[in-house]
Design a protein around this nucleic acid. Sequence first.
DNA 1: CAGTAAAAGTGCGTGCACGCAAGTTTGCGC
DNA 2: GCGCAAACTTGCGTGCACGCACTTTTACTG
Lengths: 218, 218
Amino acid sequence: MTTPPSGLRERKKQATREALREAALRLAVERGPDQVRVEDIAAAAGVSPRTYNNYFASREQAIVSAVTADREARIAAAVAARPAGVRLADAVTEAVVAQYTNTGERAHKALLLITTQTALRDAFLDTTAGIEPPLTAVIAERLGDAGARTARVLAASVAAAVRIALEGWLRPPGNAEATEDFAAGGLVVPSGSLPDQLRTALAPLAPAFDAAEQRTQP
Amino acid sequence: MTTPPSGLRERKKQATREALREAALRLAVERGPDQVRVEDIAAAAGVSPRTYNNYFASREQAIVSAVTADREARIAAAVAARPAGVRLADAVTEAVVAQYTNTGERAHKALLLITTQTALRDAFLDTTAGIEPPLTAVIAERLGDAGARTARVLAASVAAAVRIALEGWLRPPGNAEATEDFAAGGLVVPSGSLPDQLRTALAPLAPAFDAAEQRTQP
DNA sequence: CAGTAAAAGTGCGTGCACGCAAGTTTGCGC
DNA sequence: GCGCAAACTTGCGTGCACGCACTTTTACTG
């Protein structure tokens, strides 16, 4: 499973993908993100522009993917690695927190770049949707076949919560964008650390996890 | 609040928006969805192509918006209309179900069209994200200022659940697309009625709503 | 009833995503 | 090895989204 079927073809594909990722990020950092055309990225990776588009559906995706990389696979593994004894809600929360906390130095620098542009910011937030399928799989494993639907909903909810946490985190606190239509009582906590944001956002979902879990193991 | 500030300017804008909506849907039905260019929609609505793009960010959005229209506003109203006595979870569930059930004849025909094309299907599913802000507002009202964050997460979870329900509903049952990586035990219920799908998808979130609600009214 | 500021509409130009139909490489069975 | 089939790459063409600068329309004020 970890080694799909075969070898040389797949290696080349991954190599190309990574070359594109790295080229996109490097160029975006060197010049501004606006000054990087698809043509440049493709050239830097040694492929045609058309091929570039076989790997990434948008310019933003390429840049962002250098940071997100294989986060999806690692999240699934992280959840599965937790012992079966702990609450499912805790297992998921900690797995998610771990994945978004252990960002390397390079990732942190890249995030600064991402914050500067709305399009990049959105692309980055969209990657949270990618954790949904693996999360669904691992949650479903815990809930049994009867809870497949529930697993899907919970996984999607987690992804949504993570997105909210990230949004709140990388929002420039001084940004006067307001909270759109209804600014509550102004009691919005500006932005704590990312782990805090994640835990806070995931906390409301814990009861749903508990209920689902108890239905299978009374 | 129901009458924003003033009148003539806003009326024209809405008129143009509706003209574009209707033109997009009509043309998409008459010819295939693929045979409709932005230029045509704009012409049919009596505006320039450039203006069309000031209203809709994609061709699919224009077509789909004819069906989704002002669903967002109605959902908020529907939740607010429920008496304060009922469980918040039930209020939200029923409000959502009602909104997606009372689709008229026209909407139903349009949905058939939407199903035929992946791009349209995706655009339609993306509109569920639009119910998040109003839902957040009305849920936050119930939970009080302390639960603003929680309201946001719950609203996003509801939107995600609705999306899943819709996905399962308008998926051609015979579609051998498989469930991607892990096909559970083959126990996937093909597709019940839409209200059933919605209730089933929202059910797992009820405990989270209950917990949030009880925290404010012990 | 101007005169002016703001907002919506428009033309133009640029870069991009993607379908299609080649050409090229890789993998596999004989 | 050999050739065939599937997978990957690439060039081309089309339609599209959107920034920018400019014109036209709407709203407000002296």
